[in-house]
């Protein structure tokens, strides 16, 4: 689905940054080093299944650390 990769990247930013804009560069560099350039994806970009798989996993990994490790 066109725009799906951008939607997932936006969701990752929301989950990670939680309204703190200072965290967005951190997440952006993390994506870039994993081969995903957020600037390449718009609402009209065709689906990129490999990028979507990676971003979904990043969202899941972060959410799992919210659930685990609490005292």
């Amino acid at each position: 689905m066109a725009g799906e990769t951008k939607r997932l990247i936006d969701e990752l930013m929301r989950v990670r940054a939680k309204g703190n804009p200072a965290l967005e560069p951190f997440v952006r560099v993390h994506l870039m080093l994993n081969g995903i350039d957020p600037a390449r994806y718009t609402e009209n970009t065709p689906s990129d299944p490999e990028a979507e798989r990676l971003v979904r996993k990043m969202i899941d990994d972060f959410r799992s650390q919210k659930a685990n490790g609490a005292p």
Binding site: N68, G69, P71
Partner: peptide
């Protein structure tokens, strides 16, 4: 890696993501 982070989080009193 997740286990080591959880160890650190527990010691600091917070889930790693928080």
């Amino acid at each position: 890696v997740a286990a080591a982070l959880e160890t650190l989080g527990r010691a600091a009193g917070s889930a790693p993501a928080d």
